[in-house]
C-alpha cells in the first residue's frame, strides 16, 4: 500500500471499531424479550380431539382439548406470510411462538384463552387477530 492508503485504512478501521459496537449494542438493547423460550413447545403429534375449527384463506385453526377445555392450538398456515417474522400472542399478550413458512404449528394454550394475535414485532404491525 502507498502511504495515503495506509492512513485511510487506519481511519476507517478506527471508525468501525468505535461505531459498530455502539450500533450493535443499541440493536441488542432493542431486541424484544420473549417471556417464553422462542421455540414453540412440541405438543403431542397424535393429538387431542378437535373442539373447534376456524378457517380462512390464510390459515386453518383447530382448537384441540379435552372436556376441561382447549389445551392445544393447531395452526395450519396455508401460504407463507408476507412478514419475515410473525409471532403469535395469546389474549394476554403472552408469546405462544413464531410462525413463518406454510405448514402446521402447534402451541400450548390456556383453556380460558379467547383470542390470538399474530404480530410482526420488527415492523410493529398486527398481521391479524383471530377470535377463538
Amino acid at each position: 500500500m502507498i502511504s495515503s492508503q495506509r492512513k485511510r485504512h487506519r481511519f476507517i478501521w478506527v471508525m468501525i471499531g468505535v461505531l459498530l459496537p455502539l450500533l450493535v449494542v443499541l440493536a441488542v438493547l432493542r431486541t424484544p424479550s420473549f417471556p417464553y423460550s422462542e421455540k414453540a413447545e412440541i405438543v403431542a403429534e397424535t393429538s387431542l380431539p378437535i373442539l373447534k375449527e376456524i378457517e380462512s384463506d390464510l390459515f386453518k385453526i383447530n382448537l384441540r382439548g379435552t372436556s376441561d377445555g382447549a389445551e392445544e392450538l393447531e395452526l395450519l398456515l396455508k401460504v407463507p406470510l408476507k412478514s419475515p417474522s410473525a409471532v403469535v400472542f395469546d389474549d394476554q399478550q403472552n408469546v405462544l411462538g413464531q410462525i413463518g413458512a406454510s405448514g402446521v404449528y402447534r402451541f400450548p394454550i390456556r383453556p380460558a384463552n379467547k383470542a390470538i394475535t399474530i404480530k410482526d414485532p420488527i415492523k410493529n404491525q398486527i398481521i391479524t387477530e383471530i377470535k377463538l
Binding site: 440493536a27 424479550s33 417474522s85 414485532p121
Partner: peptide
Amino acid sequence: FLGAFQQET
C-alpha cells in the same frame, strides 16, 4: 443484528 437476531436471540 437488526434482522436475524431480532428473532434468533
